[in-house]
Amino acid sequence: MLESMLIYLPLGIIAGLMAGLLGLGGGLVVVPILTITLKISGVPDEEIMKMALGTSFATICFTSLSSVYAHNKKQAVLWRVLFKFLPGVLCGVFVFGFFVTLFSTLVLKYCFAVFVLFSIYNLLRAKKKAEENKPPNESIKVLTGFGFGIGGISALVGVGGGAMTVPLLNHLGFEMKKAIGTSAAAGFPIALAGAINAIWHGINVEGLPAMSLGYIYLPALFGISITSMLFAPIGAKLAHTVSPIILKRVFVSYLGIIFIQMVLSAH
Rank of each mutant, 00 (worst) to 15 (best):
Gly147Arg: 07
Ala76Trp: 00
Gly161Tyr: 11
Leu123Met: 14
Phe83Arg: 07
Cys111Tyr: 11
Leu102Gln: 04
Ile180Ser: 00
Thr165Asn: 07
Ala70Tyr: 01
Gly147Glu: 14
Phe115Val: 09
Phe85Gln: 15
Gly152Ser: 08
Leu123Thr: 05
Arg80Glu: 02
Phe115Trp: 05
Leu124Gly: 04
Val68Phe: 02
Phe99Tyr: 12
Phe112Trp: 05
Gly88Pro: 00
Trp79Leu: 12
Phe85His: 15
Lys109Tyr: 14
Lys141Met: 14
Ile120Leu: 14
Ser104Glu: 07
Thr63Glu: 00
Gly162Cys: 02
Leu90Val: 13
Gly88Val: 08
Gly151Leu: 05
Ala126Gly: 08
Thr182Phe: 02
Ser119Tyr: 10
Ala185Thr: 14
Lys73Cys: 11
Lys128Asp: 13
Lys178Val: 00
Asn72Met: 10
Gly145Ile: 05
His71Tyr: 04
Phe146Gly: 05
Thr101Asn: 09
Gly97Arg: 10
Thr105Ile: 08
Ala76Gln: 02
Leu90Ile: 10
Ala184Asp: 15
Pro87Trp: 13
Val107Thr: 14
Ala185Cys: 13
Ile150His: 15
Ile140Leu: 11
Phe174Glu: 03
Cys111Ala: 12
Met164Tyr: 04
Val142Phe: 01
Glu138Thr: 14
Tyr69Met: 15
Val157Phe: 11
Glu132Ser: 12
Thr144Val: 08
Phe115Ile: 07
Val166Glu: 02
Lys128Thr: 14
Ser139His: 09
Cys91Tyr: 04
Gly92Trp: 04
Ala76Asp: 00
Asn170Val: 00
Thr63Asn: 03
Ser66His: 00
Ser64His: 07
Cys61Gln: 12
Asn122Met: 11
Ser66Cys: 01
Asn137Arg: 08
Gly152Asp: 04
Ala163Gln: 06
Thr144Leu: 08
Ala130His: 10
Ser104Val: 07
Gly147Asp: 10
Thr144Gly: 11
Tyr69Lys: 14
Cys61Val: 13
Trp79Ser: 07
Gly181Ala: 01
Thr105Leu: 09
Ile60Met: 11
Asn122Leu: 12
Leu102Lys: 07
Ser139Glu: 08
Gly161Val: 04
Val95Gly: 00
Phe188Pro: 06
Lys178Asn: 06
Gly161Ile: 15
Phe83Ala: 08
Arg80Cys: 03
His171Gln: 09
Ser104Arg: 03
Thr105Trp: 06
Lys134Trp: 06
Gly151Thr: 04
Glu175Ser: 06
Lys178Ser: 03
Leu78Pro: 00
Ser119Cys: 12
Val166Thr: 15
Phe96Ile: 13
Ser154Tyr: 12
Gly88Thr: 10
Val142Asp: 07
Cys91Glu: 02
Ile60Gln: 09
Thr59Val: 06
Thr101Phe: 05
Pro87Gly: 11
Tyr121Glu: 10
Ala184Cys: 01
Thr182His: 02
Gly151Asn: 06
